[in-house]
Computed example of a mutant assay.
Amino acid sequence: MATEVYFVRHGETMFNQLNKVQGWCDSPLTVKGINDLKITAQALSQVHFDDMYSSDLKRAIDTVHLMKAANQVSEIGKIKKLPEFREVFFGSFEGDDIEGTWKQIALAAGIGPETDVTKIINQVGIYEFREATKKADPRHLAENKKELDERMVRAISVLHELAVGDKRILLVSHGDFIKTLAIKYWNQSDGLHDIIFPNNGSVTRGILHENGDFEIVDYNVDAENM
């Protein structure tokens, strides 16, 4: 039996509001973030889920509990936290000013002091952007394309094992991670170039097939339009 997976991006956080790099580092949801999530939670309140999961970062955990509390048709027990679905790791840049970080990455990619991440990726491609991030990181801890791809494959494998027998599940993850999943598994992506960044509280829907294959079928959708 195939399992339908509703990926929800966490709500806006303090670091989102302050334009700081936020990967594995964490910051609390803002009032706006919570209010926006309440709209998503209400829109999904009549959707039955067999289980709910989140990444192990607090902004995702807080988000999934809002989804659980609002749902009127599901009986969800303890929510399992999955570190495999954490945000992309930006290494030494975690918590830094976001435009200053993009500038350093652009310089490492050889294109000059650009601060618009979309323009950087459009020029060098998403894979070279990942490599430049690791190169620019003074400690070279940031995830590159290979490391992130291996983690995504591992994440889907873990989810496949957990979801056996489930018809539909909800999983709260993060913007860059969900976007990278879509680049790899969405048939409307060519797998090479960047796509739009998902909104806070948006829903991306995937199908996890019984044989372990995975595909994205809807991306960055307002929950009210599901």
Rank of each mutant, 00 (worst) to 15 (best):
K80H: 14
T63E: 04
D62A: 11
L44F: 07
V5A: 10
I156G: 03
H160P: 11
T118A: 14
E4M: 08
Y127V: 12
I61A: 10
F49L: 12
A182P: 06
D62K: 11
I195N: 07
T63G: 01
P28N: 09
D96P: 04
E12T: 02
D194R: 14
S92D: 13
Q72H: 12
M1D: 14
R130W: 14
I105E: 02
I126C: 09
R9Q: 00
K135T: 14
A2Q: 14
D166W: 13
L159N: 02
R86I: 01
I126W: 06
V203K: 01
K68Y: 10
D176G: 15
Y219N: 04
P138L: 09
K103A: 02
W102C: 12
P138F: 04
Q42F: 12
Q104H: 10
N220M: 07
N220W: 01
I120Q: 10
D96K: 08
I105G: 00
E128W: 11
L171H: 06
I98Y: 08
V47C: 06
D26T: 06
Q72S: 13
P28W: 07
G206I: 05
A223E: 02
M14S: 14
V5W: 01
I216F: 03
N211D: 15
D149V: 12
R151T: 02
M226F: 14
A136W: 04
N35I: 02
L57Y: 06
D51P: 07
D213P: 09
E94H: 06
L159T: 06
N16C: 00
S157K: 15
G175C: 02
T3Q: 10
E147C: 06
N220C: 03
L192D: 15
D97F: 00
R9P: 00
R151E: 10
S54H: 10
G91M: 01
M14Y: 15
G175Q: 03
F177I: 11
L37N: 04
